[in-house]
């Protein structure tokens, strides 16, 4: 078997898979994380009328902790769960929603772009849920 691994290393051209969806959040100086009032399914959410019950600002000084916790690629995998996605939190940069996520019932995140939505299932959801509690976001 070691031979197979060696050989395929020779045979296969390298490439790199990355989650590129983090860039907006990584670059931002100030990030807002908010709890959503609505319990609407993602399909029915109106981003222009998003109602939030509470929110926290993450400034430059505390950003590293957030980045290390939330923007960790090992937290995510390709979407595969057949659960209904009801976002519980929103991440905003410059008053624009860049991501919506739920870390409990249907652990999932959607990164928002102008032309597309990029979904991932959250696998280390308890880690993210705990962090939301630390931020005093229910």
């Amino acid at each position: 078997m070691k031979t197979i691994i060696l050989l395929t290393t020779i045979l296969i051209v390298n490439s790199c898979d990355r989650i590129n969806s983090f860039s907006d959040i990584e670059k931002a100086d100030k990030i807002t994380i908010a709890t959503l009032n609505s319990e609407a399914e993602y399909e029915d959410i109106n981003l222009t009328k998003l109602e939030m019950s509470s929110s926290v600002q993450i400034e430059k000084t505390t950003k590293n902790e957030f980045v290390n916790t939330f923007l960790n690629e090992s937290n995510y995998e390709a979407l595969s769960r057949r659960c209904k996605f009801i976002p519980r939190y929103a991440i905003l940069v410059n008053n624009r929603v860049v991501a919506l996520f739920d870390a409990t019932s249907c652990p999932r995140v959607v990164f928002k772009y102008d032309d597309e939505d990029v979904f991932y299932d959250i696998v280390n959801n308890s880690k993210i849920a705990n962090y939301m509690q630390i931020l005093n976001l229910e």
């Binding site: 319990e39 399914e41 390709a78 769960r81 057949r82 659960c83 209904k84 009801i86 019932s105 249907c106």
Partner: peptide, 16 residues
């Protein structure tokens, strides 16, 4: 049915 059978916790009803 090919669908989730998960519990939606406190919120309303709701590979590789």
């Amino acid at each position: 049915g090919d669908l989730c059978n998960s519990i939606p916790e406190t919120r309303r009803g709701t590979g590789i």
